[in-house]
C-alpha cells in the first residue's frame, strides 16, 4: 500500500512542531545536568588542591542543583 502523501506531510509537520517545542525543554534538561557536572567538577578539583574532600565537592553539587533547578523553573514558568 502506498502511503497517503497528505498523511506523510502532516506527520512531518507534526514532528517539526514537536521538535520545535522541545527546544527549551532540551536546553533546560541539559543545563540541569551540566550545572551539576561543572560545579561538582570544580568542587572536586578544589578539594584535591586544598585536601578538603569531600566538602567542596558536596557544596559544588548543591550549587549545581540550585543553578540547574533555577534554570528549569525559568523554562517552566516562561510566559509563552
Amino acid at each position: 500500500m502506498k502511503p497517503d502523501p497528505n498523511t506523510l506531510g502532516d506527520s512531518f509537520r507534526f514532528l517539526q512542531k514537536i521538535v520545535r517545542e522541545a527546544g527549551p525543554a532540551a536546553s533546560a534538561s541539559y543545563t540541569l545536568l551540566a550545572a551539576v557536572l561543572l560545579l561538582g567538577g570544580i568542587g572536586y578539583v578544589l578539594d584535591r588542591h586544598y585536601e578538603t574532600a569531600p566538602v567542596l565537592l558536596l557544596i559544588g553539587i548543591l550549587l549545581g542543583l540550585v543553578v540547574g533547578f533555577y534554570e528549569l523553573a525559568k523554562t517552566i514558568f516562561r510566559k509563552p
Binding site: S27, Y30, T31, L33, A34, A35, L37, L38, L39, L63, V66, V67, G68, Y70, E71
Partner: peptide, 20 residues
C-alpha cells in the same frame, strides 16, 4: 541570590554544549 546564579548559568550553557 539571583545574580551569582545567572552568572554561573551563563557559563553552564556552553559547558552543556561542550560535554554533550
Amino acid at each position: 541570590i539571583l545574580i551569582p546564579i545567572e552568572i554561573v548559568a551563563m557559563f553552564v550553557k556552553p559547558f552543556a554544549l561542550t560535554m554533550r
